[in-house]
Design a protein around this nucleic acid. Sequence first.
RNA 1: GGUACCAUAGCUCAGUUGGUAGAGCAAUGGACUGAAAAUCCAUGUGUCCCUGGUUCGAUUCCAGGUGGUACCA
Length: 302
Amino acid sequence: MPKTLIVLLGPTGVGKTDLSIRIAQHFDTVITSSDSRQVYKEMRIGTAVPEPEQLSQVKHHFIHSHSIHDYFSSFECEKETLALLQNLFVEKNQVLMVGGSMMYIDAVCNGIDDIPTIDPQLRKELLEKYEQEGIESIRMQLKLLDPVFYNEVDLKNAKRVLHAVEVCLMAGKPYSSLRKNTAKKRDFNIVKIGLNRDREELYNRINLRVDQMVEEGLVEEARGLFEYRHLNSMNTVGYKELFEHFEGKISLEKAIELIKRNSRRYAKRQLSWFRRDDGINWFHPEQEEEILQLLTEKCSGN
RNA sequence: GGUACCAUAGCUCAGUUGGUAGAGCAAUGGACUGAAAAUCCAUGUGUCCCUGGUUCGAUUCCAGGUGGUACCA
C-alpha cells in the first residue's frame, strides 16, 4: 500500500475544517495543519482553529503547537511536518494535511531552498538602515552583493530586497546561488484537493464568520495580545486591525469592516496562488462523495 | 393629492457653459522559494432612470412619465 499525503487546501472561510474531520475519519487517520497562524497557541478566535469537539474527534498536529514568541516559518513547517510524516506513515497509509498557507503547503510538497536562518540582530540592523536611508540604499547593497538577483527581484517590494540582502550577508554568498528552483522528491504520494465556492458565497461566509468571531470575543482576545503587537506572528488579519482600534486610530466598527475586507483580499490572494498549481483537484465543499471517491482511487495506488 | 429637490460605476458622490464621463471606498487580475493571514504590482467595470422635443450632436436644455426624499395638505 503506497503512502499518501492528502492535502486539503482552499481560501480562508471556504469550509476546509468541517470536511477535514470527516475525511480523516473516513481514512481513520490524523490531521496535520499547514496554517501559518493556527500553530500559535495564543490565538484561537481570530484564526478560526477547529472547535474543541473537532480536535477531540481527530488528532491534530501543528494546531496550537507553538508560541507567538517562537520563530516559525515555512522552513520549520517543512522540516517538522516531514519528520512527523515519517513517524505517521509507519502506521498510517494516509495522512491528511489541512490549511491554506500557500507557502507552507508548497514547502511540504516541494521543499524550499536551503538558505541560512537570519540572525535577528542582522534583520534588525538592516531594517533600521532601511528606515533611515530608504529603499534605494538597500537596493544598492543588493546590487553589489548579488547582481543576478537584483535583476530578478521586484525592486519595489522592500521586504524581498531586504531579505535577499540578509541572506547574502548571512550566507557569505549571493542569494541567487542558493536558489535552486527545483522541487524536492518526496517518498510518499501527494493528492491535492482544492475547495472553492462562488466568490459572492465565499465573501458572504467570510463576512459572517468575522461577525461571529466578534460575538465570541475576538476583541477581548486581541486586547489580551495587544502588548505583543510588534511580533511578526501578530501581523495577522483579525488582530492587527483591532490593535489600530486600541491605539485610537480607528473605530471598532471600522476595524471590523477592515477585518472583513482584509480576509476577503487574503482569500483572493490564496486563489491567485493556487490557480497556478495544475495538480489541484477542485471541488465545491459539498461534493463530499466525489472527493472521497477520488481519494479512494488515488490512495489505492491507481 | 400639491410643491420643491434629486435620479451618473457595486456604494457615496463630483462633472460636462451641449461634443457619450471621474474621484473615494468596494471590487478585479497578477507576482510570490526560510517574515507569507506577510509583502508588492497593475486595472474603471457605466443604456449618465425612461420616452419624446429642440439641435449637426443631448448624460447635460425643454416637456411628459417613473422612482425616491422633504415639506404642505
